[in-house]
């Protein structure tokens, strides 16, 4: 299609869809109302399950099966990236040359790294208690590690980042979630049922399997994002196409 035709098709479609959506919005319940049938049930259930963070109770207990799917999407995306960004015929690795880093940047990185790591671990560990959890904390942990890339250089990052080990960690996190679910089946209950004692309300070990699944997700997300960024860094810094392959194109 030529540009104007494409634009017209798009505009006609967009205007009609916008009109439909706006029309539908008038039928929505008004903003800030207090009619939340699912929310009320979920919070009641969370308290009954000794899980202070109701959102974690929904994520890792009441709708744990959704979270299994969601964490698998991330797992699949990371695996897909590893497969697609592999080094192929006609590509070779070059050693990156270290670039000079300004002192202030270096100090910023060195100071922030431990802080960020502690925050990450805190957010993961307190998933059953306060906002956050495995997913959020996992990403904080993964990005924290990359402060080293800013503060020192790529080689310093590579030294503390054996990608193979993190790939295994990613898979172990995924497997731990599934195995926890299967363990409940072996214990004679339903898949992903919260069969572990629920503990004392508002303590780190409360919530039963919520704490376990939360850590499994944290591990999977932290390792997965590290592997993901490693593949991107690899492509951006190390792998380059060789001349013959370029000529063939």
């Amino acid at each position: 299609m030529s540009r104007p035709v494409r634009l017209w098709v798009f505009l006609v479609g967009a205007v009609l869809v916008a009109a439909l959506y706006a029309w539908a919005c008038f039928d929505l319940p008004s903003f800030g109302g207090d009619h939340h049938p699912y929310g009320d049930r979920a919070v009641r259930t969370a308290l009954a399950q000794h899980t202070a963070n109701a959102v974690s109770s929904v994520n890792f207990d009441q709708r744990a099966f959704d979270t299994l799917g969601e964490q698998t999407i991330l797992f699949a995306a990371v695996l897909g990236t590893v497969v697609l960004l592999r080094q192929v015929r006609g590509e070779r690795r070059t050693d990156p040359t270290p670039a000079p880093v300004a002192d202030r940047v270096r100090w910023f990185g060195v100071l922030m790294l431990p802080v960020a790591l502690v925050v990450g671990f805190y957010v993961v560990a307190h998933g059953p208690l306060s906002p956050g959890g495995g997913f959020q904390g996992g990403i904080v942990l993964a990005t924290a590690l990359h402060l080293l890339y800013i503060a020192a250089d790529y080689r310093a990052l590579e030294r503390i980042r054996p990608v193979g080990l993190y790939e295994v960690g990613d898979a172990v996190g995924e497997a731990a979630y599934v195995v926890t679910g299967l363990a409940a089946v072996l214990a004679g209950s339903a898949f992903l049922a919260n069969v572990v004692p629920h503990g004392t309300f508002n303590t780190l070990s409360s919530g039963g399997t919520v704490a376990v699944l939360n850590i499994a997700v944290g591990m999977e997300v932290a390792c997965g994002i590290i592997v993901l960024l490693a593949r991107f860094l690899d492509q951006a810094v190390e792998i380059e196409e060789t001349a013959e392959e370029t000529g063939a194109r």
């Binding site: 299994l68 797992f75 695996l79 295994v168 898979a171 172990v172 497997a175 898949f191």
Partner: peptide, 14 residues
């Protein structure tokens, strides 16, 4: 039916 292939893929990656 969902859990078994998921476990399989995790094992294969590990």
């Amino acid at each position: 039916v969902v859990a078994v292939p998921l476990l399989g893929s995790a094992v294969l990656v590990a």
